[in-house]
Amino acid sequence: MTIAVCPGSYDPVTLGHLDVFRRARAVADQVVVLVAHNAAKRPLLSVETRVELIRAAVADLDGVRVQATSGLLAETLRELRADLVVKGIRGGADFDAELPMALMNRHLSGVETVFVPGDPALAHVASSLVKDVARHGGPIDDLVPPGVADAVRAALTAGETR
């Protein structure tokens, strides 16, 4: 059985991410969407909320599960007995950012990373841009799975009252 891991912060999950999960499932028997806490980022949504939103978004995909992690990806890959890491890339900047991580993960775990070119129709969709559009009152419903836009808007509203 082939196990693929799709790690990311997913703050928030987008339609581009879902595209990568579906395509990973096409080449692996099981896909684990791994929601990571990135200490270098200040997330809008809690890890728990991100896990819930992704679970709802992939509910129709057999063989896909979602879990959180806070440790080193290489350790989680060993624990899961993962065969590969699948990462979506939209262009050169994504590749430049992801390549060193892929090489380090291979060094530490022996697990290869496969880069999946993003759907060109979604190449403009990034979690950071989705949050920025939402912060300015713009529409994001067509960029994210159902329920995510409401969660983003609620988190932004809650943040304004803190």
Rank of each mutant, 00 (worst) to 15 (best):
H124Q: 04
I140Y: 02
L99A: 14
H124S: 03
L72V: 06
V20R: 11
A59K: 10
R65W: 04
V85A: 13
H37V: 07
T2G: 08
H107D: 10
A4Q: 05
R78S: 14
N38G: 01
D19S: 11
H107M: 10
E112K: 12
L34S: 05
E79R: 14
A97D: 13
L99T: 03
M101C: 03
A123W: 07
L103P: 13
R50S: 14
A68Y: 01
I89M: 15
G71P: 06
T49Y: 00
T49P: 00
V125P: 15
R153W: 08
M101W: 04
L72G: 08
D96V: 11
G118L: 11
A134G: 08
D11E: 12
L108S: 09
V133Y: 02
L108R: 05
R25K: 10
L44S: 08
A154I: 00
T49W: 00
F115P: 09
S127F: 05
P146L: 02
P7S: 02
H136I: 10
T113E: 12
D141I: 13
L18I: 01
R55Q: 15
R50C: 13
P12A: 03
N105T: 11
P100F: 05
V116I: 12
V5W: 05
E98F: 05
V130R: 11
A154W: 03
A28K: 05
V35E: 13
A28S: 06
T161H: 12
D142K: 10
A82H: 04
L61D: 02
G137S: 11
D132N: 14
D60R: 01
V66T: 15
D132G: 02
A82M: 06
R42T: 15
V51N: 03
L99K: 12
S128Y: 07
F95Q: 00
V64I: 03
A26Q: 15
V64Y: 01
F95R: 03
A154Q: 12
V5I: 09
V86T: 07
P7E: 02
V13M: 00
T157Q: 04
H17Q: 06
A151P: 15
A57D: 06
V66A: 04
C6M: 02
V13G: 04
V35Q: 06
L122S: 05
I3Q: 07
P7Y: 00
R55P: 02
V152C: 14
R135L: 01
G118A: 11
G16A: 13
G159A: 14
G138E: 02
G92Y: 08
E112Q: 14
D19C: 09
D11R: 13
S109E: 09
L84A: 13
V58E: 06
A39V: 11
A39Y: 01
D141T: 15
V33C: 04
R65T: 15
S109W: 02
E160Q: 14
F115Q: 08
G63D: 00
V33I: 12
G110R: 08
D96H: 10
V20W: 07
R50P: 09
E48K: 08
D62R: 06
P7R: 01
A123P: 01
A57I: 00
F21D: 06
R153K: 13
